[in-house]
Simulated scan of single mutants.
Amino acid sequence: MRALLVVNPIATTTRPRTREVLVSALSAELDLEIAETTHRGHAIELGTRAAREHYDVVVALGGDGTVNEVVNGLLVDGPRDDLPALGVVPGGSANVFIRALGAPRDPVDATGLLLEALRANRRRSIGLGQVNDRWFIFCAGFGLDAAVVGRVEQARSRGRTATPGLYVRSAVAQYFRGPERTTTSIELKLDAPPADAADGVGAEPSGRFAAVIVQNCSPWTYLGPRPVNPCPEASFDAGLDLLALRALGLPSTLRTVWQILSPQPDPHGRHILREHDLSGFVLRSDAALAAQVDGDYLGELSELRFTAVPNALRVVV
């Protein structure tokens, strides 16, 4: 079986000796080519080559950002039946994707499960999201959460490690110092308003929003071991889910945070809109706002066009 292993050498939680053990285990059972990423976007280039040269499997060893880039490379020419399957060995700080699949967070255990799945020819087809021209696996955001991701990326560029504590401190700082708390500029337009739309039967959501979170699976992310779940019904087997906040006042925002961190999350309230299993929608803002996909900061944009793509990718799991 011809396989390409895409390794992020600066992945947060794997040491060089651990990576050597993992590479050795994979090489023993696969016709394995190894490629280390050297710059942002390199994993996209490697995924594109693997798709066009018809590899059987591409294994991403790194965090969610590495996995996202590999997926965007695999799907650069669109979904098709003969694309390489994706395997993941976690090496990041959150590893949301592999945990959402129910696979181990430990890289050695995850490698063992991956090899077992390859021997048994186990594959799972999952749906993905697409925003503008970018594919995403588990989440996207417009507004506050994306601004927090941008703040964390700035800290990482200065040598900081992406820990849960860094995300919490960045979120608090962005909430009180950023412009998002006093801005409600986002408009939402659904491709096909669902019959049970929260704002009325068959109706478009009314009003404007301060921030929007989009999920393709549950959870949205993890705070250390704790799942964070704005849209607990989100699934790889359904369309896209979203949670939109009409305002970011302190009492209502704290209440929402408490709800999404609950063991049985059910965010609700007058300031919240939740939609489930959407095929597509557009978010527009008068002023450009921060945007992110899978924890990767995209910059400030004024329009995001979302599409749910079922059975877009095969995953070894």
Rank of each mutant, 00 (worst) to 15 (best):
R2A: 11
I10N: 08
I10S: 11
T12V: 12
T14L: 00
P16T: 00
R17E: 11
R17V: 08
V23A: 02
E36S: 07
E36W: 06
T37A: 04
H39W: 07
A43V: 06
L46W: 01
T48F: 09
D56W: 11
A60Q: 02
L61I: 00
V67E: 06
N68K: 01
V71A: 10
N72W: 02
L83V: 08
P84V: 03
A94K: 06
F97A: 13
I98V: 09
I98C: 13
L101F: 09
R105Q: 10
A110L: 02
L114K: 10
R119W: 02
N121Y: 03
I126M: 13
L128W: 08
Q130T: 13
F142N: 00
G143V: 04
V149Y: 08
G150R: 06
R160I: 14
T161Y: 07
T161A: 14
T163C: 04
L166G: 01
R169P: 03
A173L: 13
F176M: 00
R181P: 12
T183R: 06
T184R: 11
A192N: 14
P205Y: 13
R208N: 13
A211T: 14
I213E: 06
G224D: 05
V228P: 10
E233Q: 15
L242K: 10
A244R: 03
L245W: 09
R246V: 02
L248W: 11
P251I: 01
S252G: 06
D266I: 09
G269Q: 01
L273T: 11
E275D: 11
H276L: 01
R284I: 11
D296G: 05
F306Q: 05
T307N: 15
A308I: 02
R314D: 01
